[in-house]
Simulated scan of single mutants.
Amino acid sequence: MMPLRTPWVLILLLWGAGLGAAAQYGKVSVIFDLLPMAYPDAGAAVGWIVSLVGFVGIVFGVVAGLVVARFRYRRALLVSLWVGAAVSVVQALLPPLPWMLASRVVEGASHLGLVVAAPTLIAQLSADKDRGLTLTLWGTFFGVAFGLLAFAGRPLALNFGLPALFLAHGAYMALFALILSAKLRALPAEDAPPELSVREMLRSHLTIYRSPFLSAPAIGWLFYTFSFVSILTVLPPYIAADSRAFVMTAMPLTSIAVSMTVGVGLLRVFSAVRVVELGFALSALAMVWLWLVPGGPPACLFLAASMGLMQGASFAAVPQLNQTPSAQAQANGAMAQMGNIGNTLGTPVMAFALVSGGYSVLPMLAGGAFVLGLIMHLLLGKIRRR
């Protein structure tokens, strides 16, 4: 039975837990240049401290959907928060590099549990009229968390040392685990939990990616994440120096603002998939603009606004296309997997292409990714209608 009212305090708490999950990535990203001081003999291996969380997501994203559905969403969320808190405390000790890397693998599992369980719970707890808004809010968790870490997390590490940042993150995760353990009630079981055999885990990949309902949000998310992070990484040198700082600060904020306003409004009129398709189409047009006017600030902001339509609508598409909590957990696990693949591949592919072909490759490659995302959504929609 769907709720008639949305428990907004609880939704905000789950979003807050999502900020902690995003910080599992961001806390290391914002201090990456400081890590060689803690591990002076590590060399290039320091990069693994950042990337191992994403690697776990690539390999085990779909498996996480099965595990969360098996152990139920409240339990999986709380365990993931407590594990995340404990790992951050261990990291505050700045253990030897092999142990630090091992902690990041464990943290990757904690991260997956959070990004699968939290949006599934948000979808189930939200009233039907508010689900587009609540899942769009969820879709902002990465951008907001990275902004907060850049604003407060890095200065904390610079002034008080790296352990202070890790301890602050551990305290944050523990606090939300305590609050949510008291506030969050287990949802009634609506379907039988899946098996956790190796055979079932392997078969689940085929099941998800053969289904135009389970896979659609994740397939679109792959092309979005491939483009978003890589564009923000490689675009700055092509923007005029006098407006570069403003544009790069405004782009993620514009994306979030459009997602929470225009995106939410469109979701009240159109299906989430249609809003994602519109975002892909407008983003492709924005890349044509950036091809004609390299690094133009208005074109950059139009691109950010267009990508904002994809941000929240992609998460809103999960419950619209998949009715049961276990199916939603599978779809969210696939989104985690595809998102990690997109984030991992996007920047190096884009950077290599720019070195090889110059600026003109940027709008061609990113625009091509947006067109492919649109085509895939249209094809999957056609298959669903059959």
Rank of each mutant, 00 (worst) to 15 (best):
R199I: 07
G57V: 10
I383Q: 01
G296K: 05
V56W: 13
L19E: 11
Y172W: 14
F280R: 02
R274S: 07
A157S: 14
I383E: 01
F142L: 14
F176G: 01
P96S: 11
R244W: 04
A157C: 10
I375M: 00
S356L: 15
A245E: 12
P217V: 14
L112Q: 01
I49W: 03
R384T: 08
A329F: 12
P325M: 11
V90S: 01
G381W: 00
T225L: 15
V116H: 10
V229W: 06
S110A: 15
R5H: 03
A109P: 00
R203L: 07
A331Q: 02
G43T: 04
S204I: 05
A21Y: 04
Y39H: 11
S271G: 06
Y25R: 12
R203A: 13
E195L: 14
K129Q: 15
V371A: 13
Q91Y: 05
R185V: 08
T344I: 13
T347R: 05
L278H: 04
G368M: 01
L97P: 08
G153Q: 06
L93Q: 11
A257Q: 05
V276S: 14
T6G: 03
A369Y: 11
G65L: 04
L175H: 01
L167Y: 15
L10V: 00
G20Y: 12
V262W: 03
F71W: 06
L35G: 06
M364A: 15
P294F: 07
K183F: 13
A118E: 11
S197N: 07
R104S: 13
I122C: 09
G367F: 09
P363N: 09
G279V: 07
T254S: 09
L202I: 02
W82N: 01
A64L: 06
R384P: 07
T225R: 09
G113K: 01
A92T: 11
